[in-house]
């Protein structure tokens, strides 16, 4: 499996089963890697959106700054102090996105 950039939330979410689903379609190896990259990008956008939704404007700025600087530990300190059950919210969003992507794969297999 290709190694992808780690994010501060990477330990909470996994798209491995999505890759398994793609393996059951007609996509080639390189096509699968490209689609997995897209899946990760979609997931990343959704998770960032979820986090930003729960922050005030000033807290958003601090979070984004820490993210741009790659300060993972400080990111978690900041989020845990500002948002209740943030890990749960992140995993819920990830579940939702994964479900949508899996559904898309199911549909192309049917056609």
């Amino acid at each position: 499996m290709k190694s992808r950039p780690k994010h501060f939330y990477s330990q909470l979410v996994s798209l491995e089963d999505l890759e398994t689903d793609l393996g059951l379609t007609t996509v080639s190896g390189s096509e699968k890697e490209e689609l997995m990259d897209l899946a990760h990008i979609n997931l990343h956008a959704a998770i960032i959106d979820t986090i930003l939704f729960h922050l005030t404007d000033s807290d958003k700025k601090k979070f984004l700054e820490l993210m741009a600087l790659g300060e993972d530990e400080k990111i978690w300190e900041h989020l845990n102090s500002k948002v209740e059950k943030i890990e749960e919210k992140i995993t819920d969003t990830a579940k939702q996105i994964k479900s949508q992507l899996k559904e898309d794969i199911k549909k192309v297999k049917r056609n």
């Binding site: 379609t25 007609t26 996509v27 897209l38 979609n42 956008a45």
Partner: peptide, 21 residues
């Protein structure tokens, strides 16, 4: 192909999500 269908769909989704973000 299945790849083309998924690629297009996920690109569109990403574009819209990014714009909304």
């Amino acid at each position: 192909s299945q790849y083309q269908v998924l690629r297009k769909k996920w690109l569109v989704r990403h574009k819209q999500a990014k714009a909304a973000l």
